[in-house]
């Protein structure tokens, strides 16, 4: 067991984890934050994306011990049913979630983009989500949902 200290959605969490535990397992199984999904566990689908120090990272490829002292944000950390993040509202309004399984990762990836570049072109948005698979929507509604939240469109 290794001691780790993580800031998860603003709260400091101290835990002991086996060295081989991935951040995906930690957020879902140790911290109960099941909004983070998994579709392959091998870095191929993007569904497990979380933000580490503001940057989208695949939690299935990240050892929890290696994330120690980092600031982690999961989908639960950016908005709630009563106070959703603008992207969370926009995804609904644009039909950007069908089964919803890729959605938390898509939203976090898009949020990291908008935090860096509040006015991305459609091409930039597409490049940013090119590591996130969605099997349902065909992505177009996702592009619109993100574009609607750019500074220009707000």
């Amino acid at each position: 067991m290794e001691p780790v200290t993580l800031t998860v959605n603003g709260a400091t969490r101290r835990l002991f984890v086996p060295p081989q535990r991935t951040l995906l397992e930690t957020v879902r199984e140790d911290l109960g934050l099941t909004g983070t999904k998994h579709g392959c566990e091998l870095g191929e689908c993007g569904a497990c994306t979380v933000l580490i120090d503001g940057v989208p990272i695949l939690s299935c490829l990240t050892l929890t011990v290696n994330a120690t002292d980092c600031e982690i944000v999961t989908i639960e950390g950016i908005g709630s049913m009563t106070e959703p993040h603008p992207l969370q509202r926009s995804f609904g309004e644009h039909g950007a979630a069908q089964c919803g399984y890729c959605t938390p990762a898509m939203i976090l990836t898009a949020k990291a983009l908008l935090d860096r570049d509040p006015n991305p072109s459609e091409e930039t948005i597409a490049e940013a989500i090119a590591g996130n698979m969605c099997r349902c929507t065909g992505y177009l509604s996702i592009l619109s949902a993100v574009a609607a939240v750019t500074e220009e469109n707000q």
Partner: peptide, 9 residues
């Protein structure tokens, strides 16, 4: 290389 997330890592 790979995808945006993997390039971050």
């Amino acid at each position: 290389v790979a995808s945006p997330q993997i390039r971050n890592q």
